[in-house]
Design a protein around this nucleic acid. Structure first.
Lengths: 298, 298
DNA sequence: ATAAGCTGTTCTCCATGAAGAACAATGTTC
DNA sequence: GAACATTGTTCTTCATGGAGAACAGCTTAT
């Protein structure tokens, strides 16, 4: 009977309410905003009742829309749960795993973990979304995310992934050091130009250095601030002699070997907490659960 | 997450189980069999589990398919209920009404009822499916059906629609009566040729006639048996002098007026139960409820 | 006051899913 | 045993739904 609303359409409607907007819902569902718009309009036409009030810049449910959403959301969630359990009941780890990760883990942290994981679970198809600015994993339609230093969102769980610590190393081009001198103590860094990286969400990668038995925070003169996503850009400027760069040591190894960058105050480098895997605390699909296990055992 | 099965697909899966086959499910849902086939296959691929075993000529659920169906069927039914109640909450009678009716009610019984109904409820879109052979209203994807003399199916309710009784009239062409003589009593009918109508499902329209104070069943010599759907065919043969025809009086009025057919044994005509509206006993959409009310008050 | 950025919606075009036809397989009837 | 009827599935074609672009409207920043 054509009076029925396809429950898949209802899931679109629920996503709009969950995300607070059509574009956010579209992003989470991996569809175009126009589909979300036309789907909600079609539901309203079929039921003959407005479900959403679209004030510009915000969406909110009507009374009827809220009542409908409250009633069907747990039902559709349980349908998803039933499907997931059917999928899991085969005992095979299969399906798709979508990870939202910063560029920073792309060169050398994630590849070995993924390679091992996919060899162990060949039926899992992995999709990597490289993004730095977005913290909300669910809103981006991903199963899990990797982040440095992000605070824990509601209902999210985090475990370490990759190196438990990473050293923040300082480096400069030989030409820069010949011109400006090589600092002999952390205090001298304030007289130098710095190239600093900024995490998503605004915080700079801090320059915390060891000074004898203590750790001090150094605020150098910042000539350039770059998103952690644009890793290679920062390295290029550093190689060009723009200043002293502060970055994860593993990123700098190739330049050290090639001589294009030289370590600065190597004895003062201190450890930084490594990246963490974030995922929703419940409704864990089998592929994600297997990946979590792979992270725990690596 | 692409691990999710669209719940609309699950509805297709449930229809296959309900109807016991792919083609029956396709008919009920108003889609092509190929869509049902590919939809179920897609669900099985997504979940990585066979849900149905398709022995040729029969379909049955696997253990996992049965478990999944048992769990999600009430959930999706409640989702439909929630939508229906949202639609009803506007207080407006709107939507679609799909009726499965025999051709017998098309000329003069249904039109006045529908005309009145649609004038009262202009927002309802009515679709009429003319079918005689099929008894299962739900399996045909209709909201309700009209039938003569059909037995009550499980969970179905019936109310009279249109005339509470209809007379079974006998008639013949003048030329036939001149040649064979005009029967003076019901008993003489056995010496005449008959044109009889058959209801869907096999029973013939019985020739029950009054004989004094009693009612007798007459079994004439049947020259032609026609489905009630082919009403005009039977009339044509009768006009051509093939025999005495037995049919609802309202169908014969035009021929009586035109003189193309003449009443036979008019004093012996007895009343027959009129048609009935059949509909599922629960989950009554608003358009159907309004139509039921219209039938009750006409 | 203007520009920029973001929203939801509408419109256009095309890729995809669905309809329809054809097929292979099986059970029933003659 | 052959013919017939029906099934589920596969293949081909095309109509439609969705992506993408553009639009109108609104809020915020300059």
């Amino acid at each position: 009977m054509k009076n029925n609303v396809p429950p898949s359409d209802l899931r679109v409607f629920l996503a709009v309410l969950d995300e607070g907007g059509f574009r956010a819902a579209a992003k989470r569902l991996g569809v175009a905003p126009s589909k979300v718009s036309t789907t909600v309009s079609r539901i309203e036409a079929t039921l003959g009742a407005p479900l959403l009030v679209r004030t510009t810049r915000s969406v909110r449910a009507t009374e009827q829309g809220r009542a409908l959403a409250d009633r069907i959301a747990p039902l559709l969630a349980e349908v998803d749960q039933a499907c997931m359990e059917t999928a899991n009941s085969t005992g095979r780890v299969r399906g798709r795993l979508k990870l939202n990760v910063p560029g920073a883990v792309m060169p050398d942290i994630l590849p070995p973990i993924l390679t091992k994981f996919q060899r162990k679970h060949p039926e899992v198809e992995v999709e990597i979304v490289v993004e730095n600015d977005l913290v909300d994993i669910v809103a981006s339609g991903c199963d899990a995310g990797i982040r440095y230093g992000a605070s824990l969102e509601k209902d999210m769980v985090s475990i370490p992934i990759g190196p438990r610590v990473q050293q923040i190393a300082l480096a400069a081009a030989p030409a820069y050091l010949e011109e400006r001198g090589c600092p002999q103590s952390p205090g001298e860094l304030t007289m130098h130009d710095a190239i600093r990286y900024r995490f998503h969400g605004g915080p700079l990668l801090p320059w915390m250095l060891k000074n004898g038995d203590e750790t001090i925070s150094v605020e150098p003169v910042t000539r350039l601030t770059i998103s952690v996503n644009a890793m290679n850009t920062g390295l290029s400027y550093a190689r060009a002699g723009l200043g002293i760069i502060g970055m994860f040591r593993n990123w700098l190894e190739d330049d050290f070997s090639a001589g294009t960058l030289v370590p600065v105050l190597a004895d003062c480098w201190r450890d930084q907490e490594g990246p963490r895997l974030y995922y929703p605390g419940r409704l864990t699909p089998t592929p994600l659960r297997a990946f979590i296990e792979a992270c725990r055992t690596s």
